[in-house]
Design a protein around this nucleic acid. Structure first.
Lengths: 237, 237
DNA sequence: CGCAAACTTGATGTTGCTCAAGCTAGGTGG
DNA sequence: CCACCTAGCTTGAGCAACATCAAGTTTGCG
């Protein structure tokens, strides 16, 4: 594995950029393509499963992953969709607590856990950077708890669309690409496929979004969508 | 503020112990009572509110806090109950993303943010320790997402009782103290007060728990409660 | 002892789930 | 190149879990 063999100085620089990749406006993959421990996964493939030993840390170079938790009878909760620049596999306990699966074709950069751990302890400021990144993820997780526990189906779907829109462009277009299936969206929002579909149809009928193809939506009335997502109950028609 | 004025060496030792306080079996408060920046909150009092500037970091010495997120119309989600040894206020963004309120009488140790930040950067291994703690919190948050999104009311309540039982003793007794109200439990589980009450009554009737006083329950059949909590749908009578 | 807040219990209502059918699109083989 | 076939999406009808509304009851504090 190249990441482990590489000289300390080189790795240090890479990892520093790597951690910085969480800041807004970074260029995904630009600092990583130079490193050779790249890996690919086809849509639907599993990167690692819940319970697996954690012996690697990954950064996503391109594509989208989903993090999945399952109940014994098959009920599924997706705790997040990760795309370029995101880090995963950094579990201090010995085992992964979720399954990571490719949504689209995914390119990843893989690091040996031992080497990665060593860097955390040795590279000044690196642990701090990871702490900030993880704290941010925790904040996002808390927002998601509010969504799952207290928002209505419409509010959930509106929040989801805005979340995806935000992490895709940030600026003008408002054309949003949904690489995941309705089933994935449902399991992310704690709903069923049918409810997601009906809700999207309703948002379309109300003129808040356009839905040409199932995986391509356009936000037509961002303000109203944001009011819905925020849960200002007055707006819930 | 004493924490900021204290010599570097002293603070370093305190904070190291502080971070270590997350390991199982620590003695809450033992290393902190020596530091004078202690603070008390009566039940119901607010430590800080969502949106407030983050200018302090706190460790709980004694008592229980709840972390609250609100929707504009008043719907409430509790993202966690924290007790002795837990750290809060460590938000890398400038503002708190939840409100922290005392459930019971609470004693806290307060640190100035600037001093705390300095320590993260200067004390070797401290950032790493905080990273591990935060990663663990993230793992717990993901479990809670599974609960909120996919578990039934009975499964939620069973999970909650076991969670509280676990963080209270760990060993034999199985007598659990619930310092929070039904309303708090409901807002933690994404349910209503009535559903929580009915579910507890049902668990009592089925002989899984005993409920002498509203805030004191006894686990009578841990195995079956655990099956319920895990969501093995067969067991859901 | 009295009072307010919290809890329990019951009757009814509604959101979102389940079950069921049809539709659409993309990929494959003739 | 077209037709089929399958996975995914949409739509509809009925249902169930949990919410809401409404009393009562208990608890614990002053």
């Amino acid at each position: 594995m190249r990441a482990q063999a590489v000289s300390n100085t080189t790795v240090k620089t890479d990892f520093a950029g790597f951690a910085l990749s969480y800041s807004p406006g970074h260029q995904p993959g630009s600092y990583l393509t130079a490193i050779s421990s790249l890996q690919r996964k086809a849509p639907g493939e599993t990167l690692f499963a819940e319970g697996d030993e954690t012996n690697s840390v990954y950064e996503i170079v391109r594509g989208t992953l989903r993090l999945v938790k399952l109940l014994p009878d098959g009920r599924r909760q997706i705790t997040g969709f990760l795309s370029a620049g995101r880090l995963l596999g950094l579990a201090p306990e010995g085992a992964h607590v979720y399954t990571a699966e490719a949504v689209t074709e995914v390119t990843l950069c893989r690091y040996g856990r031992a080497a990665f751990e060593r860097l955390i302890d040795e590279v000044p400021g690196f642990a701090r950077r990871l702490l900030d990144v993880t704290s941010h993820e925790l904040r996002v997780a808390q927002d998601q708890m509010l969504l799952l526990g207290r928002k209505t189906a419409t509010e959930k779907v509106a929040s989801f669309l805005l979340l995806i829109a935000e992490q895709q462009d940030g600026d003008g277009t408002l054309e949003v690409d949904l690489p995941m299936t309705r089933s994935d969206i449902a399991d992310y929002l704690g709903l069923t496929i049918e409810t997601v579909s009906r809700t999207l149809t309703k948002l379309k009928q109300d003129g808040l979004i356009a839905l040409q193809e199932p995986h391509r939506i356009k936000i037509r009335n961002r303000d109203q969508l944001e009011e819905l997502a925020a849960g200002e109950s007055g707006t819930n028609i």
